[in-house]
Nucleic acid binder design. Structure first.
Lengths: 107, 107
DNA sequence: TCAATCAATAGCCAACGGGTTATTGATTGG
DNA sequence: CCAATCAATAACCCGTTGGCTATTGATTGA
């Protein structure tokens, strides 16, 4: 439960890694070479990041000859959206409670 | 721009720290002592986490006598929601492009 | 006033994470 | 078939981070 959030937050916390993911979101499927050209770090570093993104379910890979194509898996962001909404929800419900209280005090 | 996302993701990536924030969301304002009782780590550790959460704008503190009360600042989650939505948006727009392409090919 | 309580800070340490270069494995083109 | 290209893995380094204990500062209650 919280372990999934862990992986998501931790995976997206690194700027280099998040930039790779963003690029895949914006521009669709990319090869490791193409990603490396823009990443500002070495190819092994990019591969490592892609490995972690894949473990987190944020990307898919597709092998074609000697190159590997990666693409974003947007569905993996759902738990993150849910979590954020949940936190906001708690806040609102506490606010509603306060409103109720004030209303009752008003009478 | 991305620096704000950095701070948010990085701050929420640690499970102990995120648990503290979740607790503040669920149950509202809490003292450091109350948070420490549940956190499973020492009071200094909790204080350090609260310091980082505060730096990230995720919590506010209020001093009352010798105790400090912390509360969640939900507004700080907005960039996170926006980012997630943006990523999802890129995905959809690429999907729309594909649909358009297929439609045009169909004619 | 003095002891006790609460939270923050200091100082330290071990583990982890992200980077590098070097290498391997697999695939392709000449 | 051999050289070159692409991506993954190995081995290592170093900075960061999260934890701890000890201490300090401030506030309270007796």
């Amino acid at each position: 439960m919280t372990a999934a959030h862990d992986m998501l937050f931790r995976t997206l916390a690194d700027p280099t890694r998040r930039a790779i993911f963003e690029r895949l979101c914006r521009q669709g499927e990319q090869t490791v070479g193409a990603l490396t050209a823009e990443a500002g770090v070495s190819q092994p570093a990019v591969s490592k990041h892609l490995g972690l993104l894949k473990e987190a379910g944020l990307v898919r890979d597709r092998h074609e000859g000697r190159q590997t194509h990666y693409s974003a898996q947007l569905g993996a962001l759902a738990p993150l959206m849910d979590w954020t909404r949940e936190m906001a929800g708690f806040w609102e419900s506490r606010f509603d409670d306060l409103e109720d209280l004030l209303k009752r005090m008003d009478q």
